[in-house]
């Protein structure tokens, strides 16, 4: 199982638990494998432990039980700074540095990795194009951008040093529906080209089914099921079905009342 780094799963959780100091358990007996090049979506409602799971991967949190492997190596054998620099990280609040220009924001990891200035500049231009932004935006500050542009910069920044992993925590959650749909489409196209190993957190079933190669449903700190998108919709697992149902009612409450009598 612990063979060469490139053979096994890209990320592996083995019986992982996470408990706060006050004793409450946020994650229990969590076992999951993320395959190389796939987009694994962690789906679940608020407080189900998705974000906790994500932050365990780049050691923003440290598990209290079990083991996590990245590239076949246990996390405690990784130098945490090295680990984080090979994992791109995108969050809902974007977290762009307000005092840096777009170019400096995107170039942060290359800069702390000691790249030469002109190489960083080329990379920034390349990345701006990649995420569909005009290179002229490079000299702007985050406050001068729209929400969608900011999130694109966030994605570009995460990709800057060409990491093999990408962790995305509800990256499109704060956007209006049209911009969100646009970014989702672009993410799919981008992922097809780049083939990163992506762990994507969302509570939006539609987003999960659209973007995920597999969808892992979480509830109360536990993994309910890991399914391919088409399996997910037809699963007989009561919790999965409940999530799908809840979403159906949420989408069209009026037409449902009119078209079909309640079950």
């Amino acid at each position: 199982m612990n063979s060469s780094p490139n053979a096994g799963p890209a990320i592996e959780f083995r019986n992982v638990g996470y408990r706060l100091n006050n004793g409450s358990t946020l994650l229990r007996d969590f076992t999951l494998e993320v395959q190389r090049g796939e987009t694994l979506v962690l789906l679940g409602r608020s407080g189900s432990g998705k974000t906790t799971t994500l932050k365990l991967i780049n050691r923003l949190l440290t598990q209290s039980a079990g083991a996590i492997y990245v590239d076949g190596r246990s996390l405690d054998q990784w130098d945490v700074i090295r680990l984080r620099r090979m994992i791109g990280y995108v969050i809902q609040e974007v977290g762009l540095f307000p005092h840096f220009t777009v170019a400096r924001n995107i170039g942060v990891v290359p800069q702390i990795e000691g790249w030469a200035a002109d190489r960083i500049q080329d990379r920034v231009t390349e990345l701006l194009r990649l995420v569909g932004l005009e290179p002229q935006l490079a000299s702007r500050y985050p406050r001068e951008l729209s929400g969608g542009q900011r999130q694109r910069v966030g994605v570009a920044r995460a990709l800057a040093a060409d990491p093999s992993f990408l962790l995305m925590d509800e990256p499109f959650g704060a956007l209006d529906p049209i911009t969100r749909a646009e970014l989702q489409r672009e993410f799919l196209a981008l992922q097809q080209r780049l083939g990163k190993t992506v762990v994507f957190v969302t509570h939006d079933l539609r987003e999960a089914l659209l973007l995920g190669t597999r969808v892992a449903l979480m509830e109360a700190g536990q993994l309910v099921a890991t399914l391919a998108p088409d399996e997910f919709l037809h699963s007989t697992d009561p919790m999965v079905a409940a999530y799908v149902d809840a979403f159906k009612t949420e989408v069209s409450p009026v037409s449902q009342d009119n078209d079909e009598p309640s079950k």
Partner: peptide
């Protein structure tokens, strides 16, 4: 802003 700090830490800033 904690999001900014977390982003920095998550990117591997010392």
């Amino acid at each position: 802003d904690p999001a900014v700090v977390e982003a920095g830490r998550g990117m591997g800033m010392t």
